[in-house]
């Protein structure tokens, strides 16, 4: 079986249980008290990481890197949990993880970091990430990283990836109407932006974590600082939606009826 070099792009987002209140400060928009709020691994990136770890297990000698862009101290806290869930090597970039940073600026930083990974064989490269981010939701970052790295085989909103014995990959992408688009690519390199995938979140296992930390701690220590480009995008205002819709639990309502009700609500 072909060993893969899987690079997962993913970082932290504020814990969704917290009160997330956007504010406009002198350095641009952000979330109130963002640096003090507990954070979690971006759920979309999490799916990508767990799929990567699973794929690597099935393909001996594969390697998995997690490329994370975020404040170093907070990445370190995040690793105390994530490092227990899957085996990977960390590439840390000390920078802002704010969802208000332009996706293009983030993509350039990530692509540069990936380019510099020692021992990475780009012919075996599978670039994984979330099809969106819980903090930005631009849905374009991984695509841009792929473009910058010259990867043109790109699959978006993927729920399943099958690596076949002949080296080819069969990919199921989400498309309209709850259907999948099934594609086959002859093999790596490729970009796979994951939706939810099919795997549950692995439980924490401190023994796995202890093994991972041998490489993660040095990676954190030598994390390079990157200054995000805040000038490439200008926000006039940031606010939570003023209009709130009460959630109702209704059974047996058709999709058309639901869509009509939402459209009516948007129209006001």
């Amino acid at each position: 079986m072909t060993p893969f070099h899987i690079v997962v792009c993913g970082s932290l987002v504020p814990d969704p249980l917290q009160t997330l209140e956007p504010t406009l400060g002198p350095e641009g928009p952000g979330l109130k008290n963002e640096m003090m709020l507990p954070s979690v691994l971006d759920p979309w990136a999490g799916h990508a990481l767990y799929e990567a770890a699973s794929l690597a297990t099935k393909h001996p000698e594969s390697r998995v890197w997690l490329v994370s862009l975020g404040p170093k101290a907070r990445l370190q806290q995040l690793m105390m949990s994530i490092a227990q869930k899957a085996k990977f090597e960390l590439v840390a970039i000390d920078s802002s993880a704010s969802g208000f940073i332009d996706a293009q600026s983030v993509a350039r930083t990530l692509a540069t970091a990936i380019d510099e990974i020692d021992g990475l064989d780009k012919n075996r490269l599978l670039l994984f990430g979330g099809c969106a981010s819980a903090s930005r939701d631009a849905g374009v970052t991984v695509q841009m990283v792929g473009e910058l790295l010259g990867l043109t085989d790109q699959f978006l909103a993927v729920d399943e990836l099958e690596a076949r014995d002949d080296g080819s990959l069969r990919v199921l992408e989400r498309i309209e109407g709850g259907k999948y688009l099934a594609s086959t690519v002859r093999g790596a390199p490729a970009v796979v932006a994951w939706a939810t995938g099919k795997l549950p979140e692995p439980p924490n296992n401190p023994q796995v974590g202890m093994q991972n930390m041998r490489t993660i701690l040095p990676a954190l220590q030598k994390a390079k600082a990157a200054i995000p480009n805040r000038n490439s995008i200008h926000y006039q205002e940031v606010a939570i939606p003023q209009q709130k819709r009460e959630t109702r639990v209704v059974k047996d309502m058709s999709v058309d009826e639901i869509a009509r009700e939402i459209a009516d609500w948007i129209r006001g």
Binding site: M80, S81, N204, N205, P206, M213
Partner: peptide, 13 residues
Amino acid sequence: RFDIQMLVQSVRP
């Protein structure tokens, strides 16, 4: 103590 920090994250869930 990263070993203990991980233990905390492991027990909490």
